[in-house]
Write a protein that binds this DNA or RNA. Structure first.
Lengths: 129, 129
DNA sequence: TCAGGCAGTTAGCCTTGTCTAACTGTACAT
DNA sequence: ATGTACAGTTAGACAAGGCTAACTGCCTGA
């Protein structure tokens, strides 16, 4: 749970690569583009940046894969996303809004807040999804 | 409590103009630069953008002032900031972290979440600062 | 009165992240 | 074997927002 310095865009790409990998078993640039609502060249440029940072690589089949470091970040962001969404829904925010806002808030909270919010939810609220 | 479309940078400038105005009675570009940790030319460019959007104006003394619209946004962001910081501190996040993260989260939550979080805090927690 | 200092602006550059248009390359179906 | 479709990349543009260097303009103290 210690992020190497990244930014929102990087984290979003990594998170969505993880999600698509879980959903489809593999990740193509064109699927990632559709998922994120950007164009193929944007994904291409982003993958170049992520490759340079050793966060993704392209495997023998031409698919996008996370490195260990990339996966660690993706999972961290994904965990934050789920926790924040859970919290928001539990205080009465509707699911769609909770999901959308969690996508922004997930980039803003650090280790400490993640831990405290997790404790708080398990003390105060119904089961953690 | 209905924001005209803005972005984080715009909202940060407006919020800090409000804060400096409250603290000092007036706002100069150089103080705003110091407060935000940016250079004078950055503030100058930002003020040009905000003037174009009718969110700030320069008064007879050369000081930066919020228009009604600018003040509305600044106050909304500031309220969100205070609420989020309050919440985070109440779940055990240390003040410094709470303040820093509130500065990011404040841009990510909408009207609904602000309302629900406010209700939740007054039900569940100690006095609202 | 004029030299310094300070506030603000302008010019020019960089990075990030997006876009469209056009190209490459593969692969499949006829 | 060849044309069509689709995945991916490259080239070139743009906008936002930041920076440094250099300029303007004012005000003050000696």
């Amino acid at each position: 749970m210690v992020l190497t310095a990244t930014n929102n865009s990087t984290e979003d790409y990594l998170k969505n690569i993880l999600i698509l990998h879980t959903r489809n078993g593999c990740v193509r640039a064109v699927d990632l583009a559709a998922e994120l609502g950007v164009t193929k060249p944007s994904v291409s440029a982003a993958m170049k940046r992520l490759r340079a940072k050793k966060l993704v690589f392209i495997n023998e089949n031409g698919h996008i894969c996370l490195t260990e470091a990339g996966r660690a970040i993706a999972e961290e962001i994904n965990s934050k996303h789920e926790l924040i969404k859970h919290f928001l829904m539990n205080i009465g925010v509707n699911e769609k809004t909770a999901a959308k806002e969690a996508c922004s808030i997930e980039h803003a909270i650090g280790e400490e807040t993640y831990a405290r919010l997790g404790e708080f939810c398990s003390k105060t609220m119904l089961g953690l999804k």
